Deep mutational scan, measured.
Amino acid sequence: HTVDVQGVTYHFDNPEEARKFAEEMAKRLGLQVHVKDGRYKVE
């Protein structure tokens, strides 16, 4: 499970961890979480 944050890619084994990380980063950076091709993108 992959999370892209402003061009940096993070990998997680656990989909729940990936989702939480994406939401946390989006909140911290004031950005949105998009799901695209099964990847989380924070932009």
Rank of each mutant, 00 (worst) to 15 (best):
1 H>R: 10
1 H>V: 08
2 T>M: 14
2 T>A: 14
2 T>K: 12
3 V>R: 00
3 V>S: 01
3 V>W: 00
3 V>N: 00
4 D>A: 06
4 D>E: 14
4 D>C: 08
4 D>Y: 07
4 D>W: 12
4 D>H: 07
5 V>A: 06
5 V>F: 05
5 V>H: 04
5 V>S: 04
5 V>I: 08
5 V>K: 01
5 V>Y: 04
5 V>P: 00
5 V>D: 00
5 V>C: 14
6 Q>G: 08
6 Q>P: 03
6 Q>Y: 11
6 Q>A: 08
7 G>V: 01
7 G>S: 05
7 G>C: 14
7 G>E: 06
7 G>P: 00
7 G>Q: 05
8 V>H: 11
8 V>M: 11
8 V>Q: 12
8 V>Y: 10
9 T>L: 14
9 T>F: 13
9 T>E: 14
9 T>N: 08
10 Y>R: 05
10 Y>I: 06
10 Y>G: 01
10 Y>P: 01
10 Y>K: 04
11 H>S: 13
11 H>P: 08
11 H>A: 11
12 F>V: 02
12 F>M: 03
12 F>P: 00
12 F>K: 01
12 F>H: 02
12 F>A: 01
12 F>S: 00
12 F>Q: 00
12 F>G: 00
12 F>T: 01
13 D>I: 09
14 N>T: 14
14 N>P: 02
14 N>S: 14
14 N>Y: 10
14 N>Q: 10
15 P>K: 14
15 P>M: 12
15 P>R: 13
15 P>W: 07
15 P>L: 08
15 P>Y: 05
15 P>N: 15
16 E>C: 07
16 E>Y: 10
16 E>P: 05
16 E>L: 10
16 E>A: 10
16 E>R: 09
16 E>H: 11
16 E>N: 11
16 E>M: 11
17 E>S: 12
17 E>R: 07
17 E>C: 15
18 A>R: 01
18 A>P: 01
18 A>E: 00
18 A>G: 04
18 A>K: 01
19 R>V: 06
19 R>F: 10
19 R>K: 12
20 K>I: 12
20 K>E: 13
21 F>S: 01
21 F>Q: 02
21 F>N: 02
21 F>M: 04
22 A>D: 00
22 A>N: 00
22 A>V: 02
22 A>Q: 00
22 A>P: 00
22 A>S: 04
23 E>V: 12
23 E>I: 12
23 E>F: 15
24 E>F: 11
24 E>I: 09
24 E>R: 08
24 E>G: 09
24 E>S: 12
25 M>S: 09
25 M>C: 15
26 A>W: 01
26 A>F: 02
26 A>M: 02
26 A>I: 01
27 K>L: 11
27 K>P: 01
27 K>N: 09
27 K>M: 11
27 K>R: 13
27 K>F: 10
27 K>H: 11
28 R>D: 06
28 R>H: 10
28 R>E: 10
28 R>S: 10
28 R>W: 07
28 R>T: 08
29 L>A: 03
29 L>W: 04
29 L>Y: 06
29 L>S: 03
29 L>T: 04
30 G>C: 13
30 G>H: 06
30 G>M: 04
31 L>D: 02
31 L>S: 04
31 L>N: 02
31 L>G: 08
32 Q>L: 08
32 Q>P: 06
32 Q>F: 08
32 Q>R: 10
32 Q>I: 14
33 V>R: 00
33 V>H: 02
33 V>A: 04
33 V>Q: 02
33 V>T: 03
33 V>E: 01
34 H>A: 08
34 H>Q: 11
34 H>W: 05
34 H>N: 09
34 H>T: 15
34 H>Y: 08
34 H>G: 05
35 V>M: 12
35 V>K: 07
36 K>D: 11
36 K>E: 14
36 K>A: 09
37 D>L: 04
37 D>E: 06
37 D>R: 03
37 D>F: 03
37 D>H: 05
37 D>Q: 04
38 G>Q: 04
38 G>P: 03
38 G>T: 04
38 G>L: 04
38 G>Y: 03
38 G>W: 02
39 R>M: 13
39 R>A: 14
39 R>S: 14
39 R>N: 15
40 Y>P: 05
40 Y>S: 05
40 Y>N: 04
40 Y>C: 11
40 Y>E: 04
40 Y>H: 06
40 Y>L: 15
40 Y>Q: 04
41 K>Q: 15
41 K>V: 15
41 K>Y: 15
41 K>P: 05
41 K>C: 15
42 V>Q: 02
42 V>E: 03
42 V>R: 00
43 E>N: 06
43 E>F: 09
